[in-house]
Design a protein around this nucleic acid. Sequence first.
DNA 1: CATGAATGAGTATTCATTCAT
DNA 2: AATGAATGAATACTCATTCAT
Lengths: 203, 203, 203, 203
Amino acid sequence: MRKMPKQKRSREMVERLLDATAAALAERGLDDTTTNHIAEKAGVSIGSLYQYFPDKDALMEALMVRVSDRVSSVFREHATKLEYVKFDLKTVSNYLILYGIDAIRNDPVSQEIMKSWNSLPLEKLLDPLEKFFLSMAQPYFVRHYQDYPIQHLEGKLYVLINSTLLTVARYLQSAPNNAITEKNLAHILSDMIVALLAPQAKA
Amino acid sequence: MRKMPKQKRSREMVERLLDATAAALAERGLDDTTTNHIAEKAGVSIGSLYQYFPDKDALMEALMVRVSDRVSSVFREHATKLEYVKFDLKTVSNYLILYGIDAIRNDPVSQEIMKSWNSLPLEKLLDPLEKFFLSMAQPYFVRHYQDYPIQHLEGKLYVLINSTLLTVARYLQSAPNNAITEKNLAHILSDMIVALLAPQAKA
Amino acid sequence: MRKMPKQKRSREMVERLLDATAAALAERGLDDTTTNHIAEKAGVSIGSLYQYFPDKDALMEALMVRVSDRVSSVFREHATKLEYVKFDLKTVSNYLILYGIDAIRNDPVSQEIMKSWNSLPLEKLLDPLEKFFLSMAQPYFVRHYQDYPIQHLEGKLYVLINSTLLTVARYLQSAPNNAITEKNLAHILSDMIVALLAPQAKA
Amino acid sequence: MRKMPKQKRSREMVERLLDATAAALAERGLDDTTTNHIAEKAGVSIGSLYQYFPDKDALMEALMVRVSDRVSSVFREHATKLEYVKFDLKTVSNYLILYGIDAIRNDPVSQEIMKSWNSLPLEKLLDPLEKFFLSMAQPYFVRHYQDYPIQHLEGKLYVLINSTLLTVARYLQSAPNNAITEKNLAHILSDMIVALLAPQAKA
DNA sequence: CATGAATGAGTATTCATTCAT
DNA sequence: AATGAATGAATACTCATTCAT
């Protein structure tokens, strides 16, 4: 009986490598991050790295997936604790956007991902996030079906989710030489969300 | 006998090189485009290429700028010919979005830029475009100042321009495995624009 | 309860590994055969493989030796059953050559060995074969000492054996873009053998 | 007007690289010869090497071809000067075999090629040599058509050329632990040649 | 003895960039 | 100013081999 079951060790190795990838990314930027750097940072031989990931791209994709998972779960927890279903759309969306911006600002990995969304398999991050927010929106609109027309709901959500995520990303990227404040941005974005979904209701 | 003044020759060379860059990008994709390919396609030695551009990045940035210029001028022409100032926002924005999507679809260079927004200095494309659309919006809102509140106008335009551009980009990137049609997308986006700017006016 | 004495188990392991080596060679070709592949195919860990063979070369050498052993014994059986000692040289050699070619053609391992005689320790195959054929020739010439002068017999056999083996190998390697048929080749080779050994007797 | 015309410089570079390849081969053996070693030995950057040869294999093949060319021309000169057409087959073949062995013995490159005929694209050497000797044999047999039957001539020459070349190669490879002397080998081989081609004439 | 996770030296090849001509 | 031959740092990935368990 080995101390650590195989599966667990394997998982740990994967985690370690992804941590190292994130760290390397944050430190040197994507272009200067080699697989050897990553292995070294993980305190693992390059051979081991390739035992767990078939190639560099796989590593990056896995990182994107992990980030999207984390973001999702953090948002879910937060939103649930908040009982977001009970509040009006403006409040909820404004709050979540601010919260998201803050989270990214305080996480070097997200930070680096934003900095180099050029060069990363961004779809692997955005696709799941899109789905996640879609799933989060569902119960909300079921509950508030009277206030919001359901016409084109899917299309509208597609547009809003991507618009919000990408605009925030771009904002963070080109900041801080930016005239708009975070608060302002969140305000406008949440306005936009409400405006598109519940035109007549907007203040 | 030097027919052409130095400056003009220089300009022509730059154009030639950018044409070659665009062509190479369109033909081989970003990953397979080397500076040597570009020089060859331009009918010039690499030595010469490096006389005009300090490095490969500069070349790509210049191309981005040029693309943004071209996009701008095409949009400007189009919009002016259309006398867009006279029409209502919904019509104008819907039309321009559809037109833009179509233009990208028919231009292999834009196509490749979309495909590899990873790896390209996208800011060099987006920053000027942002400014351009801002400048185009100005006269419009001056004329229609009665219909649209000017509060937060700059911020709103920032959000809308980026949301639209980026969402379209993402749409084109992940297409054609997409459920939403182009028409639908344009419809929703233009709705969003109107909704944010003239909430009460929305149909 | 150790049913099997150490030595026997060891021998079996060696056989198993050599079988696996041969199989891997036949299936993936020499270039794509790694020690790990071999171990896996043998249903054994690489660690075990290295318990029985110091390195990869040793494995290949052992395989060569084994192939040479098998070839020898097959030829011996065949020749003995044939009572080759009783027949004239032309018949015997012609028959054995044809038989050999056929055997190689139908054995994927031999096939691969031929294809990559570059990269294999061919001596380990040829040296024993040389000796074997020499030993097989002995009784023959003892019996037919009247028909064949024994002058330089050893040297002549050295030349003939190598000439025959290597020419056949080269023939199989460059085939099938070859003008000469197998039959023809065998015919000429056996003629050559007879001609050198019994000049006056040749038909 | 450049000092050296492009073509000549190019040729010189190729020669230099092939020399280096041969030298590296002779010094370290094929397996330990890397493209970087070769470039270094040639006093040239690795980049330049790849400007002249697409890959390592091409380098090796080119070397084989060059060796076969050299061997051919040396033999041709020698044989012509000798007016080999006038002499009887035994004398000619015996002489040429001895000469060949000697030539290989005194040329480190040929030496190394023999040592590592494993791992080299031997066909590139043998195919042309086969053709060369065939072409050299032609005029001989035209002249001596009365002494030698022309039946199966092509096939016989194929067998003899390969047998001789390969047996000599193997002899040189396994030497010096060899019982047979060079003289003896040449004697037997030339006997074999004569015996197969002119059975009745043999002494 | 067996295991197989971990190792890491080793290699072919690319391509942006320079600089002597 | 133009050329393009030469450069060489840089990199992803392999696979024979080891050794702690």
